[in-house]
Design a binder for these strands. Structure first.
Length: 476
DNA sequence: GCGTCCATCTAGTCTGCAGA
DNA sequence: TCTGCAGACTAGATGGACGC
């Protein structure tokens, strides 16, 4: 139970299985008694609205959005007035519903529901987006497969829905809007902290990979404009002199896919933190012969993503993998020459600005962006002595371990905030928690600067944040 | 090994068609 | 003519494969 908030004094059976008990003074009504369908067409001059799973209903921005699709005949679009609920028939079972922020037009494939007297639309949008209600929507939807499920008005209006008194609906909306704003602020603050920690991490690696550990070392011009000065005793070497070989993975592995067997690493397995992401593993039964062996990954190899959006992501295979592993053609397999460079040091160099500048993906006329192996081999890396490389790696490993722990902690806090928000909304809109008193204690709307009705807690569109928390007497 | 193109997946939206 | 239904379309991302 959420600290500080209490259940209502008395409950009764709602008569609806998924809802269970509701406060004694609440009703359960079918949606048809709460909303009427609006089917107004012929208003071509209004702005076009869209409903998204993440951000609810908003005016479509044709300049910013990549999606420019629009019907030729705007007279077919339905009008939604400010305050109407609109939902995407095909995505209602995923929670694609929101309140129209302004008068506008929506696709004929949508449903516009006009709230009747005593219906506070924002309360019902909070409710309609909860997991239990979405499950119920799924039961009322029809389609040949789940992905094709649609919720038509005739079915929507039959769904039983908790119905608090109108004054209480408004209090719940007021409380949830307030709580939501503070949770989103807190999440954004933590996201900014993550960004700062990532920048700090990059700065630490870059400093170590271009200056070493001795701040008093004498410097010399590197001869490379973007690199600037490096320690006097370092050399700047192309990657080709530091490795035994580099190859990209091979093709044609799809026929060897299997439920078990060896590991086939793809660009998605190359995380942004120099560590392999093995949360998803494609297993293969590799072919016999040299082709498989050529792309077989060994301990201390570097893997570099060379095509697509993940171009430049690098992984150092620091430990033995749980099974023989191979790479696909979008991943370069690089085997450092240990006489010239410590593999982990080379990975740090690739991971730093040194790599980012040189491995910036090359765009060409095709459908991909990417790097060639020549681009990789020609990249310039400042190299200290082997003993200094070893010291730099040890220092970076220790420092970055602490940073990684901080990052993980902040990410965990964000996940908990999302979970907290979801649970709070579900408990409040279904009457498990009484917020009537808490809503009365909230500051006036005029003291709040943020707009309401932002369903996406991760939007980066709001003014400066602070770490305000909810009143302690109401929320933990 | 490389440049290029095709296939597939996902999310959001549009539209043709049959029946009322 | 209207409406409901369900397949089709669009665009971005990414994996797979062809041809040189």
């Amino acid at each position: 139970m959420i600290d500080g908030l209490k259940p209502y004094p008395g409950y009764k059976d709602s008569g609806v299985a998924w809802l269970g008990e509701v406060p004694g003074h609440w009703e359960v009504r079918r949606n048809g008694r709460l909303f009427s369908q609006r089917n107004d067409t012929g208003f071509p001059d209004l702005p076009i609205l869209e409903v998204s799973l993440r951000s609810g209903v908003c005016v479509r921005d044709f300049d910013a959005s990549s999606r420019k699709q629009v019907m030729r005949d705007r007279a077919m679009y339905k009008r939604a007035l400010r305050g109407d609920i609109t939902y995407n028939k095909m995505r209602m079972w995923q929670g694609a519903v929101g309140v129209a922020p302004v008068d506008g037009l929506i696709s004929p494939a949508y449903v516009v529901a006009r709230p009747l007297a005593g219906t506070e639309p924002s309360y019902f949008v909070y409710l309609y987006r909860t997991a239990v209600y979405v499950d119920e929507v799924d039961n009322f939807s029809r389609g040949i497969v789940k992905d094709r499920n649609r919720l038509y008005w005739e079915r929507f209006k039959q769904i039983p829905t908790p119905y608090p008194p109108a004054v209480e609906q408004a209090a719940i909306v007021r409380f949830l809007d307030y709580a939501d704003r503070r949770i989103r602020r807190s999440i954004r603050t933590k996201q900014k902290l993550i960004k700062l920690l990532e920048e700090q991490k990059q700065a630490i690696i870059h400093r170590a990979a271009t200056r070493g550990l001795d701040p008093s070392v004498r410097l010399k011009p590197s001869g490379v404009e973007w690199l600037g000065e490096v320690p006097e005793h370092w050399v700047v070497s192309p990657v080709r002199r530091l490795i035994s070989f580099a190859t990209s993975g091979s093709r044609g592995w799809a026929e060897f896919y299997s439920d078990e067997g060896d590991i086939f690493l793809q660009s998605g397995n190359l995380g942004r933190s120099m560590a392999l992401n093995l949360s998803f593993i494609q297993r293969v039964r590799p072919p016999d012969g040299a082709e498989g062996e050529r792309t077989r990954v060994e301990c201390d190899d570097l893997l570099l993503c060379i095509t697509g959006a993940l171009t430049g992501n690098v992984v150092h295979v620091a430990d033995e993998l749980p099974a023989p592993s191979y790479v696909n053609q979008h991943v370069a397999l690089i085997r450092p020459n240990r006489a010239a460079v410590i593999p982990r040091y080379l990975a740090y160099a690739f991971h730093s600005q040194i790599g980012r500048i040189q491995f910036k993906s090359v765009e060409y006329d095709g459908t991909k962006q990417g790097l060639g192996l020549d681009d990789v081999k020609s990249a310039l890396i400042p190299i200290p002595t082997l003993s200094e490389q070893s010291a730099i790696c040890a220092k970076l490993d220790a420092t970055l371990d602490r940073l990684a722990a901080s990052l993980e902690s902040v990410q965990r806090e964000i996940a908990l905030l999302h979970e907290y928000r979801t649970r709070l909304i579900a408990d409040v809109v279904t009457g498990k928690l009484d917020v009537r008193e808490a809503a009365l204690l909230l500051p006036d709307e005029s003291e709040e600067s943020e707009p309401l009705n932002e369903a996406d807690p991760e939007r980066e569109d709001v003014a400066e944040d602070n770490l305000d928390t909810l009143p302690e007497e109401t929320l933990a």
